[in-house]
Amino acid sequence: MKKTNQKHWYDYLWIASLLYLILGFFNILFAWLGILCFFIPLIISIVRGNKAYCNRYCGRGQLFSLIGGRFGLSRKRDVPRWMKSKAFRYGFLIFFFAMFFQMLWVTGLVFAGAADLRQVVTLLWTFKLPWHWAYHGTLIAPWMAQFAFGFYSVMLTSTVLGLITMILFKPRSWCVYCPMGTMTQLICKARHAGEKNSDKSDFVTEK
């Protein structure tokens, strides 16, 4: 029988997720790396038609299961029924998208010179946190810094939301309403539409 509890390199990607948040505290430009967390799952789901990113590589999910599971910082209760409903998951995806495009719009304004760079990180789309210590100069274009602040806001907001639901419910309850997870699942649905309930799983059971 295959060994199923073997550790792989990708089981340590939670370190990358943690490092990302820390580095962005000292230099906001590291926030740009976060677009990997957007493009990799999308590319995998489009090209391969699976959720290998969620299933194997998502460092954020690993971080939640480590803090909530191993360190026990979770009540481990069931998520409320509405939270796993299609309506909420798709609604949150749309809301997240809208906020994302709003962020891109602000970046565009700075690029066009119609707005000044704001050295703040917006938490939960509402609270403006001072973050000027993470911005070190003028070597790069202001819009690039604006995008970094905006992107870090997205990442920090989703981490905070995930931590809250981690404490209240199961450790990885963020996965239930994660916009990337919902989006990649939708892509997989479209990719495999029409295939009659195939029992073939291209993502095998070995971890």
């Binding site: 789901s45 990719r191 195939s198 029992d199 059971t205």
Partner: peptide, 8 residues
Amino acid sequence: GAIAVVNG
């Protein structure tokens, strides 16, 4: 290894 994700 008795559970797997089918096609995402």
